[in-house]
Simulated scan of single mutants.
Amino acid sequence: MVRHFGVFKFKPGINGEQVDQCFRTMKAMVGKIDGLLDMEYGPYNSSEGLNEDFTHGFVMTFDTLASRDAYLPHPVHEKVKEFVVPKLERVIVFDIDVPQH
């Protein structure tokens, strides 16, 4: 299994409804891209203060590395990026393998 996770800092002037629409659009990829099992998201929620101005995060779960690799250039993903990326000031994405026990 692969976890694909990231954090976003939205551009100034992007409102809450636009943020929600970005994540709803991302979540809608589940069921349209083979191997994308789940997608969760939400605002930063810690008193630790280590978010470095990133305000929201997401986690996607893929069944295999091959599914994650197929997702990256997938036309549905490319369309979502066209909608989301222009609203972002910064983004970090990180993937990890999750061993199955």
Rank of each mutant, 00 (worst) to 15 (best):
V85K: 13
V93D: 14
E82V: 01
H101W: 07
K11F: 06
S67Y: 08
E48T: 10
T25G: 14
L37M: 09
E40I: 06
D95L: 00
P43W: 02
P43Y: 12
F54V: 07
E82A: 13
R24F: 07
I92E: 12
D97Y: 11
Y71C: 09
I14A: 04
L50E: 06
A28Q: 02
K9P: 02
V59G: 01
R90V: 03
L65G: 08
V98H: 08
K32N: 09
I92H: 04
M26G: 07
E40S: 07
E82C: 12
T61I: 14
E52G: 07
F94I: 08
M39L: 15
G35Y: 10
V7F: 03
T64Y: 08
E17W: 01
G57D: 07
E17T: 14
V98N: 15
V2F: 05
F54C: 10
S46T: 05
P86Y: 05
A28N: 15
Q18T: 15
S46N: 08
T55S: 07
Q18K: 10
K27Y: 08
G13I: 04
D63G: 13
D53C: 03
M1T: 06
H77R: 14
P73E: 15
V85M: 10
V19W: 03
R24N: 12
N45E: 11
A66N: 05
M60Y: 00
I14T: 00
D95K: 02
G31W: 07
P43F: 04
G49P: 14
K87C: 01
L65D: 02
Y41G: 03
G16R: 10
L50H: 14
L36T: 08
V80P: 00
Y71Q: 13
L37R: 13
V59H: 08
C22K: 02
F54E: 11
K9A: 12
C22N: 04
V91M: 15
K9G: 06
D97V: 02
G35W: 10
K27I: 06
G49F: 01
F54W: 07
H77T: 00
V7Q: 05
H77W: 03
F10S: 06
E82G: 00
